[in-house]
Every structure is written in structure tokens, then in C-alpha cells.
Design a protein around this nucleic acid. Structure first.
Lengths: 207, 207
DNA sequence: CGGGATTTCTATAGATCAATAGAAGATAGA
DNA sequence: TCTATCTTCTATTGATCTATAGAAATCCCG
């Protein structure tokens, strides 16, 4: 990432844009399978039948590719979560929707999400912090809904909100590393998580 | 791993044994922090102020070190889980104990568990399969207890046992990647997971 | 079909890394 | 202290990997 400066003007060209897209896709696929450090740029090129050096016409560095893949992996999570929190629904309903919304990209772009979940820690500082901010935003959405539920009495008052948020997200994020066979029925899984969380957290169900 | 053949007889020597121990510990630490492929043998040696080549007096390869760290990370999980399942307690009680038992090593040897959770997929086939077998054993323990709960009516009959097991383990395993601040109160967390699971799964708490 | 721009290629530099060979140093028992 | 054994070191090999340079091929527009 020194002098080459990727031909940014060319990225408006539809041809180059499509190629860049293919390369990002290939990178996501291989990063997801072997991890960032376990992936050589050669392996990415192999997916497309390209030469290793040709990748550098589109990307200044392997790190930059990771950054793009991670950005796409996290993209939309926060926005959708914030929209759901803003709805005029009960805490339990919103929590259920939050879970379903959080799981949806796991079905639609699993490689990207997997890389974002497993490999983001290898990002350079700036990108890592940017993504961490988004994640904290999502956590805050879950926390706000839980707090609302506690406030209006539908959720047990004894829960540690921070920890509970991390546990629910732990269930959601675990799905991304399941074998494909267990991962295919995302909707079912979303319902199970929501059911487990809402029944497990609501008040009035005895000691 | 060709000719050197680690001086196995020496591993009974307490001096060499202690040194080997230090090296495994250093490897676990660095693997946990930077990942297996992100770790150079130099980085492991640096932790101890040793020269990179000196590691090979104790280990035939970097892969072998990963294998040992992962083995220790997974060690004991299955045995303790099986012991708990065999107890004459209710399904809910046993589930609670299973969760607490699963979380305990996360507090006592976090680096090892973290490497086992995050890096085992980079193990050579034989070791990976051996560990996968143990994991399936643990999953079966959780599944058996859930099935018992469904059979005796304490747990909802509509749960998908396999998926529910993976979700509960997802919560447990998520803890290992929490920031230290969130990770310190393992006992609290175990109680929260158990509470969430048992209340979320038991029957008779409405639609 | 001709020519400039775009895309991909070959070739290679330069760095890093796992692992080996063998010398040097440390240790401990006699 | 002498000596055999154990431990660590220096030096290096060969492989691999990211990234660059510049030539070749391809594409597209007139």
C-alpha cells in the first residue's frame, strides 16, 4: 500500500467493478475457510483462476481485502438493530426481532459474517476500532430493549443486562461456526433463540 | 518432525519437563493472542527470552505445539460432563451443573481453552478428529440431559434438542472471547446461563 | 481495423519463517 | 576437578509469501 494507489476512478467502470467484486467474494470465501493468516494471496487468486500478482491491480494489500470483507460482514447490523429498537412494540417483541435480524446475514452472506466474527481482530487498528464501535452500537440496542423490559416489569429485575446481552449475542454468533447442516434453518434457529431468551428472562415464572 | 525424535526419556527429567511446560505455556499465550497462523516460533521464544531454534530441542514442530495446547484446552471437559450426567439429580439440576463445569476451565486455563476453541480447526487431521470426538461426547451429555428433561415433562416437548445444545454451548464458549473485564466473574456467568436455559426451556410457562 | 486504455501476465525482489546442523556452554555426578 | 550428558546457541537452508516492475495481451471505441 505504497505508491500503486488503486485506480479509484476505474472502480466506477462496471467491468473493473465486477472483477473487484469477484475478488472480494473469493477473499471472503478463503478467509472464512482458512482464516486470514492461514490464507495466501495465491489461494485467493486460485479461486478465480487468476495469477497472484493480478490481485494487486485491484487491491493495495491483503490487509485491505480483509478490511473490505469485514466491513461488508458487519454492514447493516447496526442500522437494522436501531430501526427495531425504535419501533413501538413490547420489549419481548423487539428482542425477538433483534435476534431474527441479527441472524439474517448469517444466512445471506455467511462467508462475510464469518470473517467479520472470527478475523476482525487481525485488522489494523483504525478499521478494528471502527468495527468495534458498530458492535458496541448493536450491543447497546439489545441492552436498551432489555432495560426497557426490566423497567416495565416484563423482564426479571435481577438480570445483569450487560452480561445477558453478551450471552444472547453469543448464541447468535455461535451459529456462524456451526456445520452447514446445522446452519441451514436460520429462521428456526432465530425462533429458538428468541424463545429461549424471552422465556428465560421474563419475570413471574417462579424462582 | 523427521529425524530429531524428541528426547522422550528426558521428559521424565524434572528440569526438562519444567522447561517444556514453560514453552507450552508461552505457546498457549501467544496462540491465544495472535492465532496459530499469526504466531511465529520466534514470538514464542521471545516470551521466554529463548532463541527461536532452541524450541526445537523440546518440540518437533509448531504444529505439535498446537496439538499439545489444544489437548490441554479440551482436557477434562468430557470426563466431568459424563460424571455429571450419571448423577441421580433432576434434569434441570444436572443441566445447571453441566454449564458450571463447562465454564470452569475458562477461568482456570483461559489461554488453553481459547486456543482449543479458536484454533483447533488448524490441527492436522488426526488430532482434529480426536478432539472433535471429545466435543461430540460433551454435546451428547448435554443432549442426554435435555432429552431426560423432555421425557419426564420438566422441559418443553417442542425443543429441537440438537440445536438447543449448540445454543447453550454457544453461550458457554462465547465467554472465552469476552474482554477480560467481562470474563472475570465466571461463577456469576455460569448461573446466568443456567438460569436462562432452565427457565427458557422448562415447560408450563405459557405460550 | 487501428490505437489508446485497461487488464492480466511473467519475473523477481525482499522479507519472513519453520526447521536443521553442529558448535558452545551449562550442569551434575564421580 | 574431570567428564559425560543435557541444554542452548550461532548460523544457515530452503520454502513461502507479499508486493512491485514492467512486458504482453485484451478490450473498446472510432
Amino acid at each position: 500500500m505504497t505508491k500503486h494507489t488503486p485506480p479509484l476512478r476505474l472502480l466506477r467502470n462496471s467491468r473493473a467493478l465486477r472483477r473487484a467484486e469477484e475478488i472480494v467474494d473469493a477473499a471472503a470465501q478463503v478467509f472464512a475457510e482458512r482464516g486470514y493468516h492461514g490464507t495466501s494471496t495465491q489461494a485467493i487468486a486460485d479461486v478465480l483462476g487468476l495469477r497472484q500478482a493480478s490481485l494487486y491491480y485491484y487491491f493495495p494489500s491483503k490487509e485491505a481485502a480483509l478490511e473490505i470483507v469485514c466491513e461488508r460482514g458487519v454492514d447493516g447490523f447496526l442500522e437494522r438493530a436501531e430501526a427495531i429498537v425504535a419501533r413501538k412494540e413490547s420489549a419481548l417483541q423487539r428482542l425477538t426481532h433483534l435476534v431474527a435480524s441479527h441472524l439474517e446475514p448469517i444466512g445471506s452472506k455467511p462467508d462475510y459474517v464469518r470473517v467479520f466474527i472470527n478475523e476482525r481482530r487481525y485488522l489494523p487498528n483504525a478499521a478494528r476500532k471502527r468495527i468495534a464501535r458498530k458492535i458496541r452500537g448493536v450491543e447497546r440496542c439489545f441492552a436498551d430493549v432489555l432495560a426497557a423490559g426490566v423497567a416495565d416489569g416484563t423482564l426479571r429485575p435481577d438480570i445483569d443486562i450487560r452480561r445477558t446481552v453478551l450471552l444472547i449475542l453469543g448464541m447468535c454468533n455461535a451459529v456462524i461456526n456451526w456445520p452447514a447442516a446445522d446452519r441451514d434453518a436460520i429462521d428456526e434457529t432465530a425462533r429458538e433463540i428468541a424463545l429461549l431468551a424471552t422465556r428465560g428472562l421474563r419475570s413471574g415464572s417462579g424462582a
